[in-house]
Amino acid sequence: MSIQQIAVAYTAVATAENGRDGRVATDDGKLDVVVNPPKEMGGSGAGTNPEQLFAAGYSACFQGALGVVARAAKADIKGSTVTAQVGIGKTEAGGFGLEVELITSIPNVDRATAEELVAKAHEVCPYSNATRGNIKVTLTVA
C-alpha cells in the first residue's frame, strides 16, 4: 500500500504535556483540556482521554463526509447523527491498539440508501482513509 499524498490546506497543531495524564492544548487556544486515563485503565478518569478526543474528531469528520456524499446523491440527511465508539486494548504483540465502530442514523432515507451513503462516506472521510488497513473500523447503520 502506498502512502497517500495530499495538498495540505490546513494543519492543526496540538501539544501534550505529561502524556495520557496531563494536558493537551492547541496552538490557537481553542482547545485546552486535562487528560487522564479512564478508570477502566487504572486512571482517575477526571479529565477526558485521547480515545474520547479521537471519537469526537472521527464522528465529526465522518458526519462531514456524509454531508458531501449526501449532497452529491441529493439525499436528505437532516437530523442524522454519527456516533464513534473508540475502544483501546492490548494487542497480541503486547502493545496497545484501537478499534472503532461508527454508528450512523439517517432518519430521512431508507435503510438501503443509508447503507450506501455510509459506505461512500467511509471512502472519502480523511479519518477513514487514515485508519483503513490499520485498525478495525465497523460501520453500523442504526
Results as ranks from 00 to 15, higher is better:
Q4C: 10
I6H: 04
I6C: 05
I6K: 07
A7Q: 15
Y10Q: 03
Y10R: 03
T11L: 00
T11W: 01
T11C: 01
A12M: 00
A12V: 00
V13H: 06
V13L: 03
E17V: 12
N18L: 07
R20H: 00
R20N: 10
G22C: 11
R23W: 14
A25L: 04
A25M: 09
A25Y: 08
D27N: 05
G29S: 03
L31F: 05
L31S: 08
D32F: 04
D32T: 12
V33K: 07
V33E: 07
V34H: 14
N36D: 14
P37V: 13
M41V: 11
A46H: 09
T48Y: 00
N49E: 09
Q52T: 13
A55C: 07
G57E: 00
S59E: 01
Q63P: 08
Q63T: 15
G64Q: 03
A65Y: 12
L66P: 15
A70V: 11
A73W: 07
A73I: 12
A75G: 13
D76E: 04
K78H: 14
K78Y: 08
G79F: 05
G79K: 01
S80G: 09
S80V: 12
T81C: 03
V82Q: 10
A84L: 06
G87C: 07
G89W: 08
T91G: 09
G95I: 01
F96M: 00
L98P: 08
L98G: 11
E99A: 14
V100S: 09
L102R: 09
I103P: 00
I106N: 02
I106W: 00
P107R: 01
N108V: 10
D110H: 14
R111I: 11
A121Q: 10
C125Y: 07
C125R: 12
P126C: 03
P126T: 03
T131I: 13
R132L: 13
N134R: 05
N134F: 12
I135E: 02
K136F: 07
V137M: 13
T138Q: 11
L139D: 02
L139W: 07
V141E: 02
A142Y: 02
